[in-house]
């Protein structure tokens, strides 16, 4: 993006790029808004699919007819890492699934940046609030953290307007 440096530099003068634009962020309100946004998303998803993702049960009113499929019959990719209570009688299978899934996710989340580069950036990347940076890489949320659903129907036509 070297070209912008020369042509667009008049846009900004000599400011530093590191700056806070609109004053302090209201953390508590942000957290409230975040939870509300997630809840709204989940409600919309429930309505759309006729499935209560919280209780993991189909809704009576939905357009879809849901049908249970044993976990062993779907590809590994579609198996949930959340062990539902009613599947507890098969601990062997469940444990195996959890393990495989866990291992796979772990590998995916490994930072791909070469060691050298990571070291270089470390000083820059460390935020003043120490301690909470350590676990961050692992803490990145998965969609399954919020939608504890098992995909029972594998394929469905997409709704228009997407």
């Amino acid at each position: 993006m070297a070209s912008h440096k020369s042509m667009l530099s008049p846009l900004r003068g000599t400011r530093r790029a590191r700056r806070n634009l609109f004053g302090p962020v209201d953390r508590d309100q942000l957290q409230v808004d975040y939870q509300a946004a997630l809840r709204k998303d989940l409600d919309e998803a429930s309505r759309r699919w006729g499935f209560d993702f919280k209780s993991d049960e189909p809704l009576e009113t939905g357009d879809f007819k849901w049908e249970g499929v044993p976990e062993t019959r779907v590809p590994l990719l579609y198996r949930s890492c959340v062990v539902a209570p009613r599947r507890a009688e098969g601990p062997r299978v469940a444990d195996a699934t959890v393990l495989t899934k866990g291992a796979r996710v772990e590998k995916e989340n490994l930072p791909q940046t070469p060691e050298k580069r990571a070291g270089e950036l470390e000083a820059l990347e460390r935020t003043p609030e120490k301690g909470d940076t350590a676990g961050l890489k692992r803490k990145q949320t998965n969609i399954t953290d919020f939608y504890q659903a098992k995909r029972k129907v594998v394929w469905m036509p997409r709704k228009s307007g997407e």
Binding site: R18, V25, L124, E125, T127, E129, D132, K139
Partner: peptide
């Protein structure tokens, strides 16, 4: 950091 730490990674 570019927001001058006005937001947190989380």
């Amino acid at each position: 950091i570019y927001t001058d730490n006005s937001i947190r990674p989380q």
